[in-house]
Computed example of a mutant assay.
Amino acid sequence: MALVEAGFVVLDCSEPEKLAAFYTEFLEGEETDATANRVEIRGADGMRMAFRRDVNATPPSWPRPENSLQAHLDFYVEDLDDAERKVVALGGRPLETKDAGGPYEERGYSDPSGHSFTLRCTRATAPKQG
């Protein structure tokens, strides 16, 4: 057995049940454990996340500098438009950001509690021109 095993990505939020439901649906996963102050899930691909109650949680303000990134998640998707529709239907919202350069097409969002994440297209795209 390894000395250290990967644990959970844990996000603080005021309503862990609601945030767990968002990510459970988005990751096509299941809830694996819940207490009064913490909910744990496992995504269909095995990713484990937990959501911890913090009644004083302040949503990150990224991309604004005040109270900026507290955590950031990247998710790989095959179709950005389909994934965006799912995120928005579940209560997430697109973030106003400048177009990022690089070899992958990507878009930024926030979950219903304000944590930022990026959807990155798994297929290679041609470099952006201009």
Rank of each mutant, 00 (worst) to 15 (best):
P94D: 07
S61R: 12
A50Y: 03
E106A: 09
W62M: 08
V77N: 05
K86N: 09
E84I: 00
V87G: 05
D74H: 10
P65C: 04
W62P: 03
V77K: 01
D81C: 00
A89S: 12
L90A: 00
A100Y: 15
L73W: 03
D81H: 08
P103H: 04
P60Q: 15
G101M: 10
T97C: 09
G101W: 09
D54S: 14
A71T: 13
E106L: 10
P112M: 01
P60S: 14
A71E: 08
G101E: 14
G46A: 00
G92I: 04
N67I: 06
E105C: 00
L95H: 02
D82G: 02
D82H: 11
M49D: 00
V87D: 05
R53H: 09
P60I: 04
R48G: 03
L95T: 06
G92K: 03
L80S: 03
S113E: 15
D82S: 11
G101D: 14
E105W: 07
E78H: 09
V55L: 14
K98A: 13
G108W: 15
K86Q: 14
G91D: 01
Y76I: 11
T97Y: 07
R64V: 12
R64M: 14
P59W: 10
R52M: 15
E84F: 00
N56W: 15
F51E: 04
P103T: 06
V55F: 14
P103E: 08
A89R: 10
V88T: 08
A44V: 07
D74N: 11
V55G: 12
L95F: 07
T58Y: 12
P94F: 02
M49S: 04
E78D: 14
N67K: 11
A71C: 11
G92A: 00
T58N: 13
A83E: 02
A57F: 15
D81V: 08
N56E: 15
